[in-house]
Design a protein around this nucleic acid. Structure first.
Length: 292
DNA sequence: TTATAAACCTGTCAGC
DNA sequence: TGCTGACAGGTTTATA
């Protein structure tokens, strides 16, 4: 499910309930998700206090008070929800099938016990334990590109990565070593906002001397803006993504091209129709009329 | 080096 | 109603 804005929404939803709380018990309802859960996972985290909640790209980071960090990835269908731990089973109207509640953090903080439930029907998500002081050595982080909203991502950096590349822009932007956190939805949206075709070679928006063309500067701006807009809206709820309180994100109502095949392009005066093609096995939505 | 395809797993939806 | 096939927000591994 989640791209960067959805994970950030989850982080913001969980932080008030988790930061400062003690983990009294970790409930593991199966031995694995996509990968085996960490060895001695429960004994490593039980009794620890959660110092803070962080995020890197699409990864949620739960920092404990002893230099350990729980690294959590939600895959395609993972979600967290918060429940009052003094009552029994509670089901929000939109709540998930409890048979996919794989990991439950039981928390104690001041007077209110809570449980944080990780649900993931497809089990493409995973959790790892890693030393916080060595987080840069975590394999997935070692090669990760800059955050799309940070200062490290600018047009010059992208020019360096795109220069000489024949790979289509769609694939180049999905590459997490180029930009960290972009997924299928927001790549489509950012390309639409910058009027660039997803089929365009990445190297074609870089000059012969390796400088960013104007189009690349527009793309950089579009990436920043679409991510910021989506975070402000609480992410996008398609099938699986719900916020930690069970409510939905709203950005899906703002999609300009994603999942809008056959519908009119929203570029003012364009008059084109949104098309859907397959690139590297994944759906791409774009407007052939205004994305060149 | 680069690019595509398949794999992981379950749920949902369209079509017959 | 029930079956089948296509498809889904991600990442890794294998194959060409």
């Amino acid at each position: 499910m989640p791209e960067l804005p959805e994970v950030e929404t989850v982080r913001r939803g969980l932080a008030p309930a988790m930061e400062g709380a003690f983990i009294t018990r970790l409930e593991l309802n199966r031995p694995d998700l996509r990968f085996p859960l960490p060895e001695n996972f429960a004994s490593a985290v039980e009794g620890r206090r959660i110092v803070s909640l962080g995020r890197r790209a699409k990864y949620l980071l739960i920092d404990l008070d002893d230099d350990l960090t729980v690294i959590s990835h939600l895959g395609m269908s993972g979600s967290f929800r918060i429940e009052d731990d003094t009552v029994g089973e509670f089901h929000h109207p939109r709540s998930k099938n409890a048979k996919h509640d794989h990991v439950v953090f039981h928390l104690q903080r001041e007077a209110a016990p809570r449980r944080i439930i990780y649900n993931d029907p497809r089990r493409f998500g995973f959790m790892h334990l890693w030393k916080r002081s060595e987080l840069d050595l975590y394999p997935a982080f070692a090669e990760l590109g800059p955050e799309p909203t940070g200062n490290a991502l600018d047009a010059d950096y992208l020019a360096g990565r795109f220069s000489g590349k024949n790979q289509p822009l769609k694939g180049a932007l999905l590459d997490q070593t180029v930009v960290a956190g972009l997924g299928n939805i927001y790549v489509c949206e950012a390309l639409w906002r910058s009027h660039l075709s997803p089929k365009r070679a990445a190297g074609s928006i870089v000059t012969k001397t390796g400088r960013p063309k104007k189009e690349l500067a527009l793309l950089h701006t579009a990436i920043r803006e679409v991510i910021a807009d989506a975070i402000a809206a609480g992410g996008s709820s398609l099938r699986d993504h719900i916020q930690t309180d069970g409510s939905l994100g709203y950005f899906q109502h703002s999609f300009s091209v994603y999942d809008r095949e056959g519908k009119p392009c929203r570029t003012p005066g364009c008059g084109g129709t949104v098309a859907r093609i397959t690139q590297a096995g994944r759906s791409t939505f774009y407007c052939p009329a205004c994305q060149k």
